[in-house]
Computed example of a mutant assay.
Amino acid sequence: MKITKIDVFLINALAKDNPAWTPVGCRVYTDAGIYGDGEAALAYGFASNAAYGALIDLSKMIIGQDPLENEVLWENLYKGTFWAQNGGAVMFGAISALDVALWDIKAKFFNVPLYKLLGGKFRSSLRAYASQLQFGWCDKKLALSKPQEYYDVAKKAINEGYTAVKVDFFTFDEDGVG
């Protein structure tokens, strides 16, 4: 099996309501028809364009390679460029996106849950929290800034079954300006 193509994309790249929130994703395709998805985890705080560019450059390094050799590919990505060896969020975010996509492919190829490949299941359940409530916790991004607004969205998340919430109170000032 070989990697044939990698799509790199900015999700919501043209969003006018919050240009500082732009997730970066990738999809790695193989000649076996299996694909894997990854995300660079640098969507917040204007790092997405840098991660997008790094991901495009790094993607070229693994086209034609065997996606099941993910540890070898990670090492090649790390040592194959001067900047990766110096670390940093942008390079490691881009490498991580590809690595996650490769693990996704591997789990699909062997038809097992990923946790089986990573050493076994440690928990039968995992607590999830409602995140980024300052954007309104709804279909449209809002700019929340008032205590009552935070209370209302936290209450909505709790009513949906969440037992914890995460809010970045510094995203917007008291007038809702970011």
Rank of each mutant, 00 (worst) to 15 (best):
residue 51 A to C: 14
residue 38 G to I: 08
residue 133 L to G: 00
residue 101 A to L: 11
residue 91 M to I: 06
residue 74 W to N: 01
residue 3 I to M: 04
residue 114 L to R: 06
residue 146 K to T: 06
residue 34 I to G: 02
residue 108 K to H: 02
residue 24 V to Q: 03
residue 152 D to N: 15
residue 168 D to P: 09
residue 76 N to P: 07
residue 20 A to T: 13
residue 39 E to S: 09
residue 11 I to D: 05
residue 63 I to Q: 03
residue 79 K to H: 14
residue 28 V to F: 04
residue 78 Y to G: 09
residue 51 A to D: 10
residue 107 A to C: 07
residue 101 A to T: 09
residue 43 A to C: 10
residue 138 C to H: 02
residue 77 L to F: 00
residue 131 S to N: 15
residue 4 T to N: 07
residue 135 F to H: 11
residue 119 G to I: 01
residue 173 D to N: 12
residue 92 F to T: 15
residue 147 P to Q: 13
residue 147 P to E: 13
residue 31 D to V: 02
residue 125 S to D: 13
residue 81 T to Y: 01
residue 95 I to Q: 08
residue 82 F to P: 02
residue 115 Y to F: 14
residue 67 P to E: 08
residue 135 F to V: 01
residue 82 F to R: 13
residue 178 G to N: 11
residue 170 F to P: 00
residue 137 W to M: 05
residue 31 D to N: 15
residue 41 A to T: 15
residue 75 E to I: 05
residue 128 A to K: 01
residue 24 V to D: 09
residue 142 L to E: 09
residue 1 M to P: 08
residue 25 G to D: 10
residue 116 K to Y: 07
residue 123 R to A: 12
residue 38 G to Y: 12
residue 97 A to L: 08
residue 15 A to T: 11
residue 42 L to W: 00
residue 18 N to H: 13
residue 69 E to L: 11
residue 64 G to P: 05
residue 53 G to V: 03
residue 78 Y to C: 07
residue 91 M to A: 11
residue 81 T to G: 03
residue 106 K to L: 11
residue 19 P to W: 04
residue 129 Y to M: 08
residue 53 G to R: 02
residue 11 I to R: 05
residue 41 A to D: 14
residue 85 Q to K: 12
residue 114 L to C: 13
residue 81 T to K: 02
residue 136 G to V: 00
residue 54 A to V: 02
residue 81 T to A: 11
residue 78 Y to M: 08
residue 32 A to S: 15
residue 14 L to E: 14
residue 1 M to Q: 10
residue 153 V to G: 04
residue 68 L to T: 10
residue 133 L to I: 04
residue 154 A to M: 15
residue 10 L to G: 09
residue 70 N to I: 11
residue 103 W to A: 06
residue 50 A to N: 09
residue 108 K to F: 02
residue 117 L to M: 11
residue 130 A to Y: 04
residue 20 A to K: 10
residue 166 K to L: 05
residue 91 M to S: 10
residue 172 F to C: 08
residue 91 M to E: 13
residue 110 F to K: 04
residue 106 K to W: 08
residue 91 M to D: 00
residue 149 E to P: 04
residue 130 A to H: 05
residue 3 I to G: 07
residue 128 A to T: 12
residue 41 A to Q: 14
residue 50 A to E: 08
residue 176 G to Q: 09
residue 117 L to T: 07
residue 92 F to G: 01
residue 42 L to M: 11
residue 38 G to C: 11
residue 2 K to Q: 15
residue 64 G to E: 07
residue 145 S to I: 01
residue 21 W to F: 15
residue 167 V to D: 08
residue 175 D to P: 00
residue 144 L to M: 04
residue 110 F to M: 01
residue 30 T to Y: 07
